[in-house]
């Protein structure tokens, strides 16, 4: 298809060179990915602060992220609540049968760690792959080019509304997730271990910093998931294989972004604020 390029074939790499290549390649790949994500994040923030995201589009995306994930979040976080209480209570039963702190600790841990992070992972899975599939399809069917020919900035048009919608909805879903998991855990504790619901539903460990920490996590997941996913979608090339590949990449990259953000935020808050 293309003219022959006449270059001397490169010498095969020596063993230590190929070792360096093998070790370094993932880092350069991650570096390139990160640079693209950060650039897109700045572009999206610019568009948002210019007020370029249409209100209707934002509401639509918020609906797609939030309302349409309700069932999924209910199912996954519900089961997580059940199994967590079951396993921890079984463990406690063997040592000292005192369940008085179980509910309080469970609720606190849900608020500061598991509800936002598992919700973030679920949104990364459902919405991240959805955004990548949508935008990737628009790229390979030239709709993104058509937007640019009509002088509509794809970042303003496609990325900004998704970011706004998700920044609002992921914290909402996280709050909902705390509720679902707590109710599920409480029901199981009552049915299997005879823990009175009043004992379980105790907020005595929950302090302001826990809530702030949970919300900070949820907001950062809500911001970065659509950015990373849209970046994967916009990099799609060539036909059905391209869209599938972009979607796959988005799932891994967004899930990993959630884990990484969780580590950074948890670590920083523990070391700096002892929270």
């Amino acid at each position: 298809m293309v003219n022959d390029v006449h270059v001397a074939p490169p010498a095969p790499p020596r063993w230590y060179e190929s070792l360096f290549i093998a070790v370094g390649a993932p880092f350069t790949a991650v570096g390139r990915e990160l640079r693209g994500d950060v650039a897109l994040a700045f572009a999206a923030l610019g568009a948002i602060f210019r007020g370029a995201a249409g209100r209707r589009a934002v509401v639509q995306q918020a609906y797609a992220v939030g309302n349409r994930s309700l069932f999924f979040i209910t199912a996954t976080l519900g089961f997580l609540g059940l199994i967590s209480v079951y396993q921890v209570a079984t463990q406690i039963q063997q040592i000292l049968p005192d369940f008085s702190m179980l509910g309080a600790a469970f609720i606190q841990l849900m608020i500061r760690e598991f509800a936002p992070t598992i919700t973030g992972l679920m949104i990364a899975t459902r919405v991240g792959s959805g955004i990548a599939a949508e935008i990737g399809s628009m790229v390979v069917t030239e709709q993104v080019d058509a937007l640019r020919m009509c002088n509509a900035d794809p970042v303003e048009y496609l990325v900004a509304p998704r970011v706004l919608g998700s920044v609002v909805m992921v914290p909402m879903l996280s709050i909902y997730a705390v509720l679902v998991a707590t109710l599920a855990g409480m029901a199981l504790g009552h049915a299997v271990f005879d823990i009175p619901t009043q004992t379980f539903l105790s907020l005595r460990l929950v302090k302001g910093p826990d809530i702030v920490l949970g919300l900070v996590k949820a907001v950062s997941y809500g911001f970065w998931i659509p950015i990373v996913a849209a970046h994967a979608g916009l990099s799609a090339t060539g036909g059905s294989a391209g869209v599938g590949w972009a979607t796959t990449r988005a799932v891994v990259a967004t899930s990993f972004a959630v884990v990484l953000l969780d580590f950074v935020i948890s670590g920083a808050s523990y070391v700096i604020f002892s929270v």
């Binding site: 199912a75 599939a133 399809s137 036909g239 869209v243 979607t247």
Partner: peptide, 20 residues
Amino acid sequence: AVGVGRAVNASVVANAAAIF
């Protein structure tokens, strides 16, 4: 192509639900 993207989306959602 659109169908492939949608299928991947549905597949990861179902997988996550099944895992829990």
